[in-house]
Design a protein around this nucleic acid. Structure first.
Lengths: 211, 211
DNA sequence: GAATGCTTGTTAAATTCTTGACAAAGTATC
DNA sequence: GATACTTTGTCAAGAATTTAACAAGCATTC
């Protein structure tokens, strides 16, 4: 339970977006930016940016704007990019591999330390420098290493039993790509669901309705 | 420009979720469900479900609830699962392959007909029965087949030029996995951005703040 | 077939989120 | 160093979203 428990979900969802735009600006060697300029870049309103940032404190300066590097770091630390949560992945199929090689876990406060699978063909393989282990070793591994986050890239059918085991072993947070709703079956866990299919359906709807 | 242009984004985002839960219920051979029961299952409120559905018409019946199959079909047709939008994918890397094999495009109103890449090693390969073509053929392919949706699974650097070409060739909708904001550079296109990194950052934040 | 109990569609209230406005405070200019 | 300009932090108004409430209508039971 932290001081920032009263920040609304809408604000939190936007923080990573700010973070990413500020990164771009750093790459472009821009030093400062006003809420107005940033808003134009992000297609949002200056008001919203100022309002959002002020949930956490006054990072800007009148007449000047925001120092990009400083703001980037502030938001990073709000999000927790400096954390080192031990993270494991369940499922080394196409999706697991894609995510492992695509996402910089370290830059997001997570240390991906192991991947588990049942398929003998992938066990022993290396994905982005991480060994794929036999899921039989999951229990021992957790007892030794105490991961706090698990990425679930496995079929719906297996999600429940694996999640249950992980929760019993002390995992608190799930990045859930499996088509199975963890929240429904477990309490007091932290879940971020990724429903890629929903996203495509939304696009179909928008396409159909030309919006 | 359709009748349903005034439906709020919040409602649209929830429709695929209803759709998916109804599918589960069909598999479980349940015939009918009340908004109350469905709400309990989905961890939402009955009020919201009824409010959402009534944007499109009264699909339920007093004292009875909703017929699951009928409602599933209604929502499907609202979303446009019966459409057959020609869809192409740009990028046959890890992520492209994962999405191709993971997502049922047909069940979402999209027909994935071709994948393009620049890498000679993947060109000619087959992913989920779809041939990976040389991106050199992109223009010809589009002129012959007129795809309306493109899935972008390519690096940020190439996203702009490829998107521009596709727009010129008549593609209107983008499912965008590239870390590049299309909306900023093009008008009058339909975009659904997927920011997986943001999703993980949100999880880090939640984990840090135990929420 | 009348009575009771559910459950919807819908309207109204409450809450949350976004936008607009402006004083205060800094920067830049002359 | 005074003046004009910029831009923040904040407060208040306005929109949008969510929740609650309830009459109307159908299903089920006796």
């Amino acid at each position: 339970m932290s001081k920032n428990n009263d920040i609304s979900a809408s604000v939190i969802k936007r923080l990573p977006r700010y973070y990413s735009y500020l990164e771009d600006l750093i790459e472009e060697n821009v030093e400062r930016i006003s809420s107005k300029e940033l808003a134009a870049r992000m297609k949002t309103t200056a008001s919203q940016i100022r309002q959002d940032l002020n949930c956490f404190g006054g990072f800007g300066q009148q007449g000047y704007g925001y120092n990009i590097k400083a703001l980037h770091e502030e938001i990073g630390s709000i999000l927790g990019v400096d954390k080192e949560y031990k993270t494991i992945m369940i499922g080394a199929g196409n999706l697991g591999k894609a995510i492992t090689s695509q996402i910089s876990f370290e830059k997001k406060g997570c240390m991906l330390t192991a991947i588990f699978d049942t398929n003998p063909e992938v066990i022993g393989q290396t994905v982005a420098d991480i060994k794929v282990l036999d899921i039989k070793n999951l229990e021992n591994y957790c007892k030794e290493n105490h991961p706090s986050i698990a990425v679930l890239c496995l079929p719906k059918e297996n999600a429940f039993s694996v999640a249950k085991k992980l929760i019993d072993l002390g995992v608190k947070s799930f990045w859930n790509f499996s088509h199975f709703d963890l929240n429904l079956h477990f309490d007091n866990i932290i879940v971020e669901n990724v429903h890629l299919g929903d996203s495509l359906l939304t696009l179909t709807y928008k396409t159909k309705n030309q919006m």
